[in-house]
Design a protein around this nucleic acid. Sequence first.
DNA 1: CTCGAATCGGGTAATTTGGGTT
DNA 2: CATGTCCAAATTACCCGATTCG
Lengths: 70, 70
Amino acid sequence: MHANATEEDVLLTPSEVAAMFRVDPKTVTRWAKAGKLSAIRTLGGHRRYKESEVRELLGGFIPAPREAAE
Amino acid sequence: MHANATEEDVLLTPSEVAAMFRVDPKTVTRWAKAGKLSAIRTLGGHRRYKESEVRELLGGFIPAPREAAE
DNA sequence: CTCGAATCGGGTAATTTGGGTT
DNA sequence: CATGTCCAAATTACCCGATTCG
């Protein structure tokens, strides 16, 4: 089992995911829209992404210790 | 679904709910004000949220075992 | 009664969303 | 087709002092 839908996990903000991939937050949103990345929605409509899923998509590579979305 | 109103239900603090959604405790308060989330009021005016309701809003997502407010 | 942490309130920046365009 | 940018509107995050919780 990798990243199941009902698995325990930590949520990341769009900025944080974008910083890890070195892309624009908008791009991360497109990935979520395309179903390439599962997203949890806040009650206001903002998206939160699972850290474990992002890690897998990164191919096990952990980006430099950069604090995004501070 | 077993989410009765007057049923035995664990109450969560704003910090705990905020940690589950990866948002600010203030944001959870806004959700309660907007009627998106029902809140129980303490005698001092502080809000408490039903765990069962929060879980449903999370859409089956189970946050990592994190103790937010202890 | 005292104390540290948390949660009130409001007010103001920063982020996110969505569509359309390049 | 994927990504980056511009725009307006909506949502969220951080600031303060005062009050409540445990």
